[in-house]
Nucleic acid binder design. Structure first.
Lengths: 222, 222
DNA sequence: CGGAAGATTGAAATTACTCAAAAGGTGTGG
DNA sequence: CCACACCTTTTGAGTAATTTCAATCTTCCG
């Protein structure tokens, strides 16, 4: 139950109290924790599994705004409604913090507020990084950036980072990177052909030359 | 000195104390408050004027991640270094909060931390909106979305919202919307030709049909 | 008024998209 | 265990939106 990411600042005592306020839930792949537009009634701490967050345009175009893993926090909303849908990618467990409880909790534990501010600040920085990717990088650069990010996040969670497991479909990657499925596939094929990466068993990808990969991701590649 | 956006939660007493911890600065157009990679030494509250925030790729490609106006807050960084450059668009006044003072302040006024969390949460939501724009909208839709946003922000500050003043260059708009200057210009010309907007004196743009404009922005336009 | 920067317009090139089909994987049921 | 259906991924060919390169026009200051 203890989350490195959110609860690192809390004492065991505080954690004990926290656990009384929350309930654990299990979510199956394809299931939604909540939908864009739903009343923002709770926050969540991801215990394990993987989620995708996305927004839709009226005609169905989709933008995935983030992938979440073990330890990640979600659900804070500046409005009364959630601004995105949270859907399960791989079976997930999450603890649910009803909004009213969040308020009590924050009132009682000022440190928690600081911690959440810190997390929000990190998310904001990566959102800006993603804007740079979406606004100014080529397809090739986007794919390279994404695979490196995935690898880094796996490392942060203490999981194998190279080869890195890629739990999302090409379609999800496309909707995250502002590309079509076909372009994602072609870009990956090109990286494979040039020997920068190798596709492995079990949806894993080996980054053969991390330095070159980093250079490609930054547009310094060729 | 009193900022609606950041300081709304503080009492006059607290504001008095705050003013002792800060200093006011004036910045000229083109000047930078700080550069990407600089040590993150201070936070800022924009008193008036306009700023742009941007990130660069090694080869000079630029992504503007935000425009800031009166009342906006900036400078929180999850790392030791700023993640972007903050440059002045129109002469600005800002009050500067050295990082050490920020820590004291947050320790003394827990409400401030909550307020900052709330602001960060709003920024995060608009960052996600921007990802949708950059990843999935056409040039036309991006321009329409941007002009509506600009108009809304002006309204929030109590300024004239229609016609709306556009204080940034076509080049800045392009780097914010992930487009080239030429595409920005052509898209605006098209909106002008179809009668949805009218270009006015003093870099102002009139939105003749806000409903249609909103439809265009959402991709429901035609 | 003159010069420089910014904005617009035109034509050609390119990247990524669309449409289409084949190949590869996975799970179910015979 | 194989056959089939379904879904994802890959590959191919043609198209379209946006970029690039180039030139002209406008605006803004000194």
């Amino acid at each position: 139950m203890r989350s490195r990411a959110v609860c690192a600042v809390m004492s065991d005592d505080e954690l004990g109290r926290l656990s009384k306020l929350t309930q654990n839930q299990t979510y199956a792949p394809g299931e939604a924790l909540f939908f864009e537009g739903d009343e923002a009634g709770a926050c969540f701490i991801v215990q394990d599994g993987a989620l995708k967050l996305y927004k839709l345009l009226p005609d169905g175009r989709r933008q995935i705004t983030g992938f979440l893993f073990k330890g990640d926090f979600l659900g804070l909303s500046p409005k009364e409604e959630y601004g995105f849908t949270a859907e399960v990618l791989e079976e997930a467990h999450a603890c649910v913090l009803p909004a009213e409880r969040m308020d009590e909790l924050i009132a009682d534990y000022p440190k928690l507020s600081n911690r959440l501010l810190n997390l929000a600040s990190m998310e904001l920085a990566s959102a800006q990084e993603q804007m740079l990717l979406l606004g100014r990088k080529t397809a090739q650069e986007r794919i390279a950036s994404f695979l490196l990010w995935l690898s880094q996040r796996a490392a942060d969670r203490g999981e194998e980072s190279n080869p890195v497991r890629v739990p999302m479909s090409r379609s999800d990657m496309g909707d995250y990177l502002g590309l079509t499925v076909e372009t994602v596939s072609r870009s990956i094929t090109k990286l494979k052909t040039t020997g920068v990466i190798t596709l492995k068993e079990g949806n894993r990808i080996e980054i053969n030359d991390p330095e070159l990969m980093t250079a490609i991701a930054a547009g310094d590649g060729c």
